[in-house]
Simulated assay, not measured.
Amino acid sequence: MTTINDQTSPVFEPPAAKAAPARAHAAHSIFHERWWLEIATQGNWKLAVVKQNDEIVGEMPYTISRARLWRVSHLPPLTRTLGPVIRPVTGSAGRQMHHRLDVTARLIDQLPECDSFFQVLDPRIDDALAFALHGFTVSARYTFRIDPRSTPDAVWARLGSKTRNVIRSASRELTVVPGLTPNEFLAFYDANLAARSRTNAYGDAVMRQLVNAFVERKAGMLLGAYGPGGTLVAAIGLVWDHQAMYYLLSSRAQDAHCGSISLLLWTAIGRALERRLTFDFDGFSSPSTFSFLSGFGATLTQRLGVERLGTVYLLTRTLKRRFAPARVFAPNL
C-alpha cells in the first residue's frame, strides 16, 4: 500500500442559507452540500423541504435549466448523486416505511413541472418506491465500492492479477505525490484534453471552481504520479464526506505508464481505508471502464435512477432513439 503523509481530516459543512439539512439520515453526501450545489449549478438550485413541528425531517435539492426547447431538472456537472435526505424514525419496519413514503411524497409534490426530471440516488437509498408510486420511472445504475472495514491486505488479495501487475510495474517507475495544487491539476487536465482535441465536458469554469473549493475546504485532494525527471504523467481528484471517498476526476498523458491511474487509485483506496471511509469508484459508462474498474475487486453496488418525462419530450426522445444507431451498452450506468 502506498502511504501518503497527510493528516488532514475530512470536512462536511452544512448548508447554511437555503435550509439546514436533515443530517441524521446517512444519505446526505458531499453532493448535497450547499457550497457544492452553489458552484455546480452557478446558484441555480432550490431545496424542497418537509417540516414537522418546525423541525426539518426531509429535504431534496434540485435544479432547473433550459436545454434548447426543454425545461429540465437533471444532475449538475460533477454531481454524481442527489435524491431525498430523510430523518429516520424509530419503531417497526412498517412505521419507518410509511414515514419514508410520506416524507418523500411531500418532497415530490414540491418538485417543479418540467419536460425532463432525472436524478441518480445515493447508493444508500435502497428503494425508490415513493417515486414509482408518483409516476416516475425507476431504473438501476451501478458503481463499485470498497467496504471501509476492509484491510489493505484483503483488498490487495481481491485485485485481479492484471491489476496487481500493472500497479507493481507502475510503482517501480512512478512516484505518487499528494497535494497537487488545483492550478497544476487543471493545467495538466486541459493540456491532455487539447492533445486529444477534446473539450471539457463539465465546463471549464464550473470544474475550476469546484476543484479549488474542495481542496480549500479539505473535502478532497489531488494526487499526481510523476515519472523520471519529475514529469507529471497522471493525476486524479478525490472528494469525501463523512461516509465515503469518491473517485471524481482523472487525467493522464498519452505516453503515461499504462498502470499510472491504477497506481493512483490504489493509493486513494489506502487513504480511504485509513480514514475508515467507503471507497466509491463512482460508476461507469462503458464496457471498457467496467472492465478496468472490475479489476479492483470491489463490490458492485446499485444506484437507483428516477426519471419523469413530459409527453412531448418523451415522444421526441423515442423518435430520436429509433432513428439513431443502436447501442450495445446503455450509457451513464
Rank of each mutant, 00 (worst) to 15 (best):
S294R: 15
A19P: 01
P123F: 05
Y313N: 04
L180F: 03
Y142C: 04
N44R: 03
T79K: 05
R23P: 05
H28A: 01
T143Q: 00
A40C: 08
T8Y: 01
E274C: 12
E33S: 13
I236N: 05
H242E: 13
N183G: 09
R124N: 07
A132N: 11
L249T: 09
G270I: 01
G83K: 02
L180K: 03
L273C: 10
D126R: 14
R95W: 05
P325L: 10
A324L: 07
L232E: 09
Y226C: 12
D109W: 10
F290Y: 15
M245A: 11
E13I: 07
P331T: 07
F185H: 14
F185A: 06
T143H: 06
A205M: 04
P287K: 07
I30L: 15
G310Q: 09
G310C: 07
I125T: 14
S29V: 06
S286F: 07
R141V: 00
L309T: 15
F185W: 13
F323N: 10
G310F: 02
T81K: 02
A235R: 13
G230V: 10
R303F: 00
A20N: 11
W70D: 11
Q302N: 00
M245Q: 10
R198D: 04
N53F: 05
A244G: 04
Q42S: 15
L319G: 08
P14Q: 11
E59R: 07
T175Y: 00
R317P: 07
T289I: 12
F144N: 11
R198G: 00
W45R: 04
H25N: 11
G237Y: 04
